[in-house]
Design a binder for these strands. Structure first.
Lengths: 336, 336
DNA sequence: CTGAAAGCGCTAACAT
DNA sequence: ATGTTAGCGCTTTCAG
């Protein structure tokens, strides 16, 4: 029952050699059309399915690519994965996804797992705690095509694809300004994260463009929990005169809204809030928050495209950085 | 450069046979402690990493399990995957996830991919369009341990783990009743889905328990798009006297809320809405909707547990159905 | 055009 | 306690 048919079986059935079968199955021109068709037909009849493990062992090509994300429950990453799968599918590759849960140890472990399982390529977004990059270096040393996305690093020469955070932030803040906001705070994340720095840049640029002065006191940092965002926003609102808050991400925006409510303020009438969301639904759920789309699916498509370019041509441009031409959509709903 | 060290290399380096190395590496008691340690040490020094592909080819065990979900961007499924990974990790297994995007063709394809790649087990939730079950049958014929979860079927003898939809629905509706609702409608999905039938049962039971009469006209069906849910709800609210709506899932709830607003009704003051949500955030986003938690993580843990039981013991109970003891939490926020 | 044979890296009888 | 050998299923020279 569990016995699978192999090329050997079909060779025996047809009384030819296994190499003939092997060749016929892959359309080798060396085989006469007649026998080739015969072999293919019987292969189908016998329900032959090639054993990819044997092929992988022989060829050192597994036809799989590994994807490592910090958190698969985050719809942003899930969207990226969908984009990757779409492209991989076209190339006849399987995608294997693993999630580190923001754990550096796990990230290293998953990288090693993909190295061991002979993945033909790896697409990865760095976990929050990742500072040592030996495992990425390891991939490069082994000449395994690799592309970083979203949470990348400048400390390594490696292809990367990122969202245009500064420009997205710029647009979001400009949106608030156009709505009439004058004192715009920014609720940011942990200081060392690149994403925060990039979006802060966009925030600053928008202010400058509008002739508003940048006040460092209005940029507050929090970790990414809703509770702490709420606390941070509360003390901000108590101490500063603020009529709008630009939030680094959706959790922070939720925290900000709760803080505003806690203080008896209305959103968006008293305080406008802008956040970055990954799915339409977030907006539907609470239309008082305007949102900016980052187009994760497109990011995945581009990252996978880059990877397969490397895999198929064998050539890499380690300096390459693709900035996702995100079709940023500001979902208007606040009065500002 | 790309050359990996094999047991052969270390055998040569130590001038022993490869089988000695193989045995030593897996702590075979047949090898003298002295040589065993020596071999292990040099293996480490030479940075030896076993090639799982060769092992898989030899042993027909890949130490991987495949997970197939309808939509990885859905946080419910992402949560389930997290739970599965947690358990698989403990067993030293890799988890490979693929998403069908609710496409039956893709589901079949992914199943075949896992069969081909010799996955040691498969955990899967049926896509919406799936009615033919040959591919699942195929897994069983090949004696590949399989467990179904969430969207399962009664048409096959196979272990399954499901959420207690009826009870969850019962609680949600009871919650509305306790809040004072008298005319409770149900916004359901496509008629053929089991999930709808189960939750409808809970809905009915709650009504009966409270001495309210069940009115079939108040159960409306929609597909799962927000837009159609909104339309369906609108015509419901226009034609029937309803003071609360129990929604089959979060998208439907969103549609319902929009319909209410469209008609100038307030939620929850005029119409209370209850939905099922997968993450806390949904609730945070719009506290006017009460929610019920389905605990996807626990579902994943249980499904994986069941699978590994089968994998390790080799025995299955195809009648087994685990109902996830979801810690159902009704997040109070509406006045009712 | 087709076959024989070697070997990918590893495991597991079967020797010794 | 260790070595020898025969594969797992497939690809790929090298010979006809």
């Amino acid at each position: 029952m569990n016995k699978r048919v192999t090329i050997k079986d079909i060779a025996k059935a047809l009384d030819v050699s296994i190499s003939t079968v092997s060749r016929a199955l892959k359309d080798s021109p060396e085989i006469s059309p007649k026998t080739r068709e015969l072999i293919k037909k019987t292969a189908k009849d016998m329900k032959y399915h090639p054993n990819p493990i044997a092929v992988a062992l022989k060829t050192s090509k597994s036809h799989t690519i590994g994807v490592i994300v910090p958190k698969i429950v985050n719809t942003f990453y899930a969207g990226v994965v969908e984009g990757i799968e779409e492209i991989a599918d076209k190339h006849g590759y399987q995608v294997f996804v693993s999630s580190t849960n923001e754990d550096y140890q796990k990230e290293v472990k998953h990288v090693n797992a993909f190295i061991n399982s002979r993945a033909d390529g790896v697409i990865l977004s760095l976990s929050r705690g990742t500072t040592v990059l030996d495992h990425i270096q390891h991939l490069q040393d082994l000449e395994i095509p690799t592309v970083l996305f979203d949470r990348t690093t400048k400390n390594l020469k490696i292809p990367r694809v990122v969202t245009d955070d500064a420009k997205a932030a710029y647009k979001a803040v400009m949106h608030l300004i156009n709505g009439g906001a004058k004192n715009i705070a920014m609720l940011s994340g942990p200081k060392h994260l690149l994403i925060g720095r990039n979006r802060t840049r966009g925030y600053q640029e928008a202010l400058e463009k509008a002739g508003l002065t940048f006040n460092p006191d209005l940029v507050i940092h929090s970790d990414f929990t809703i509770d702490n965002a709420q606390k941070a926003t509360k003390s901000l609102l108590e101490n500063e005169d603020v009529d709008a808050i630009f939030c680094l991400n959706d959790d922070l925006a939720v925290g900000a809204i709760y803080a505003a409510k806690e203080l008896g303020l209305n959103v968006p009438e008293d305080v406008a809030v802008v956040g970055f969301y990954n799915s339409k639904r977030s907006h539907y759920m609470n239309p008082s928050i305007s949102t900016v789309d980052l187009n994760p699916h497109e990011l995945g498509v581009l990252a996978a495209g880059l990877l397969f370019e490397h895999i198929t041509s064998g050539e890499v441009d380690n300096e390459k950085e693709i900035v996702v031409p995100s079709n940023l959509i500001i979902r208007e709903s606040s009065k500002r």
